[in-house]
């Protein structure tokens, strides 16, 4: 059942488990919550449709409760209703709030565009890039491509070299200085193994975060953009789908891609991010060429000396 009617009516399988106290987990629960069966070997991701996001932060809480992440306790910020500021080592889901209401009271909008408008809310997450800067940069293989096509930091390998931190074009992965390891969203790698939909996608009440196979999500997202354009929401576009903003510079595609309603920079996302590891060979090559040149120079210099010591030099 690939096409997800919004929101999916209660699937027929839900009637197979009607007892109130269950003896064991519902097998392949993702079929009930996301309408798909999770199998290794396929590529899964999120399609975050911000036109449906109501900024309730259920995703932030579900992620923190599932992964037992401590609270950031920053205190009130000046960023509208966003008081957790940014993704970090202990905040793997973060909802951004951007108020866009006209300044003078006379013309503050009352006739709004359909779906989300005038108060942009978007649930930011690790992009699980197809070509991931952090994955390429990780020297220990702690970051690896799982059987579900997601990028995960293996906590039993990472030694906190922190080279993935500057390598990520979206500023997602970060070092937790109290436990000395890198942390980021794992797309609920352990839940996927058990056939469960990731906690944030399952918890999202308005189905703004949709979990599924990436190509299915891409077709659904493209249809959604067309529908929004037809409804007059001409500022809707995909960010992270192949060939769109966010999937540039060798990254090719973000498996967690977005439907945004304003410039990427408004959400602190780069328009044309770069995959840094694409230039390693070229850069190292020029470096080695320079070394070779200097080596040759050294050889030349040292040859002259042995044949003809400089005459008449006395000290």
């Amino acid at each position: 059942m690939t096409s997800a009617v919004y929101p999916p009516a209660v699937p027929m399988r839900a009637r197979d488990h009607t007892e109130s106290t269950l003896s064991r987990v519902i097998p392949d629960e993702s079929e009930l919550t996301a309408g798909i069966t999770i199998r290794p070997g396929r590529t899964y991701g999120f399609f975050t449709d911000t036109s449906l996001c109501i900024g309730c932060k259920a995703c932030e809480v579900a992620c923190k409760e599932w992964n037992a992440l401590p609270a950031q306790q920053i205190g009130l910020t000046a960023n509208s209703y966003d008081h957790t500021r940014e993704l970090s080592a202990i905040t793997w889901r973060h909802v951004t709030f951007i108020e866009q209401i006209e300044d003078n009271p006379g013309c503050r909008a009352n006739r709004l565009k359909p779906f989300q408008s005038h108060w942009l809310m978007m649930s930011d997450v690790c992009k699980h890039c197809k070509q991931a800067g952090c994955l390429d940069a990780c020297p220990t293989g702690a970051l690896f491509r799982t059987e579900f096509g997601t990028v995960v930091v293996q906590q039993d390998i990472c030694n906190g070299c922190a080279y993935c931190v500057p390598a990520c074009p979206f500023g997602v992965v970060e070092i937790n200085f109290s436990d000395g390891k890198a942390h980021k969203c794992t797309l609920c790698y352990d839940r996927l193994k058990g056939g469960f939909e990731p906690a944030c996608a399952k918890s999202c009440p308005t189905n703004s975060i949709q979990f599924g196979e990436v190509d299915v999500l891409l077709t659904r997202a493209a249809r959604r953009v067309e529908k929004l354009h037809a409804l007059g929401v001409d500022n809707a576009y995909l960010y992270g789908a192949p060939g769109t903003a966010g999937a540039t510079g060798g990254i090719q595609q973000l498996y967690c891609f977005f439907l945004l309603l304003d410039r990427p920079e408004v959400y602190n996302l780069p328009v044309a991010p770069q995959l840094p590891s694409g230039r390693v060979a070229k850069s190292l090559g020029t470096g080695l060429a320079a070394v070779a040149g200097l080596g040759a120079l050294a050889a030349v210099l040292m040859t002259q000396q042995s044949k003809a010591p400089r005459p008449g030099r006395k000290r």
Binding site: E60, P70, A71, Q73, I74, Y81, H83
Partner: peptide, 10 residues
Amino acid sequence: VPSLAELQPE
């Protein structure tokens, strides 16, 4: 509840 308190801390 910490994960809720940090969302609206004051």
